[in-house]
Simulated assay, not measured.
Amino acid sequence: MPQGDKSAYTDKQKRQAEHIEEGYEKRGVPEKEAERRAWATENKISGGGKKSGSGKK
């Protein structure tokens, strides 16, 4: 998967990242930086893209 490809994320993860991004932009963070921070935050919260099976801890 190429870097920056968001296809491995669920719709919920994408919505959450969008909401986080909007919050950063409201605080005056530039758009590109807000997007980068939003996805970093979402990865920290959810552990990254879709997970399969019950092995996720």
Rank of each mutant, 00 (worst) to 15 (best):
S46Q: 14
T41S: 12
S46D: 12
G4Y: 07
Y24M: 01
P30H: 07
D5K: 01
I45C: 09
Q3I: 15
V29K: 04
G55H: 05
K26G: 02
R27D: 14
G53H: 01
G23H: 12
S52E: 13
K26R: 05
G4F: 06
A34D: 00
G23C: 08
A8T: 11
E25L: 11
A8P: 07
A8V: 09
V29P: 01
H19W: 11
R36E: 14
H19K: 15
I20F: 03
N43I: 08
Q3M: 07
I20H: 00
P30Q: 04
Y9K: 09
E25V: 10
G53M: 00
S46A: 13
R27H: 15
Q3F: 09
R27L: 14
G47E: 07
A17F: 00
P2M: 11
R15N: 12
R27E: 15
Y9A: 03
K57T: 01
G4E: 14
R27M: 14
G53R: 03
Y9P: 00
G47Q: 11
V29C: 02
S54V: 05
K32A: 07
G49E: 03
Q16L: 13
P2F: 13
G28E: 00
M1D: 12
E33H: 09
Y24T: 00
K51H: 13
G48A: 03
D5I: 05
G47N: 07
A38Y: 02
Q3K: 13
A17S: 06
H19P: 07
S7E: 00
P2A: 15
K57L: 02
W39A: 04
A34Q: 00
K50Y: 03
T41E: 13
E18V: 10
G4N: 09
M1N: 12
K50G: 03
K44I: 09
K56S: 06
N43V: 06
D5M: 02
R36F: 06
S7L: 05
K14T: 10
A8S: 14
K50I: 10
I20V: 03
H19M: 11
Q3D: 15
K50F: 01
K57Y: 04
R37I: 06
E31T: 06
K44A: 14
D11F: 05
I20G: 03
S52W: 09
R36S: 15
A8W: 05
R37A: 04
K6P: 07
R27Q: 13
S46P: 15
P30G: 04
V29Q: 05
D11M: 07
K26F: 01
P2N: 11
T10G: 06
K6W: 03
V29N: 00
Q16T: 11
R15C: 11
K57D: 04
E22S: 15
T41A: 11
A34K: 01
I45T: 14
G28D: 02
D5S: 03
G23F: 07
R27P: 07
S52A: 12
K44H: 12
G47D: 14
A17T: 03
A34S: 02
A34T: 00
Y9N: 06
Y24K: 00
K44C: 06
K51D: 06
S46N: 11
E21D: 08
K51E: 05
S46I: 09
G55D: 10
Y9R: 04
Y24V: 00
E31A: 10
A8E: 10
R36C: 08
G4D: 09
